[in-house]
Computed example of a mutant assay.
Amino acid sequence: MQPYVNEIIATLPDDPDHPADVLIAEDDPIIAIDFEDRLLSFGVKHVRTVASVARALQEIERREPDFALLDVELVREKSFAIAERLTALKIPLVFVTGYGAEVSIPAQFAKVPRLQKPCPSDALEAALRTRKL
């Protein structure tokens, strides 16, 4: 499967409660589109979606996001290398997972917020509003 980058830019007024640029690492295109649509409806101006660790790291290098949503389990890899890079840059992030409490998160990320897939819109928006490292 070819890694992709989907970048969507909205023309909405700035909302100080939401990040302007969000990076999504999600390997399921349907879930990625759902996240994109909801983030844009909340007032996020730029949404970039990638499906692999390598593409996420390239996108971070190209332009640092203000916030990131990371699916823990990407195809054949975990997103922890992305989380390490974002943490080093002091960029807030949230893990999203369909595996709930069963997913193993390294101790260094124990305090990173998690959202259970499918996550309700109010929980996703709350994560954006309370973004802190």
Rank of each mutant, 00 (worst) to 15 (best):
P3A: 12
V5Q: 13
V5K: 13
N6H: 10
E7T: 13
I8V: 15
I9H: 06
A10I: 10
P13F: 03
D14H: 07
P16V: 04
H18V: 14
H18N: 14
A20N: 12
D21K: 13
D27I: 03
D27F: 08
D27Q: 05
D34V: 08
F35G: 02
F35C: 02
D37P: 00
R38A: 05
S41N: 14
S41D: 13
S41I: 11
V44K: 07
V47E: 03
R48V: 07
R48Q: 05
S52P: 01
S52E: 04
R55N: 06
L57Y: 03
E59G: 03
I60Q: 06
R63M: 09
E64W: 02
E64D: 01
P65E: 01
D66Q: 01
A68I: 05
L69N: 01
D71R: 03
V72K: 00
E73D: 15
L74S: 02
R76V: 12
E77S: 13
E77R: 05
E77H: 05
S79V: 04
S79N: 12
F80T: 04
F80I: 01
I82W: 02
L86F: 07
A88T: 04
I91L: 04
P92T: 00
V96M: 14
V96I: 15
V96F: 03
T97N: 00
E102H: 10
V103H: 00
V103F: 05
V103I: 15
S104A: 14
S104L: 09
A107P: 03
A107R: 10
A110M: 05
K111Q: 14
K111C: 04
R114L: 02
R114Q: 04
L115E: 06
Q116K: 12
K117G: 02
P120I: 12
A123K: 15
E125Q: 13
A126C: 06
A127W: 08
A127Y: 09
R129L: 10
T130G: 03
L133N: 07
L133G: 08
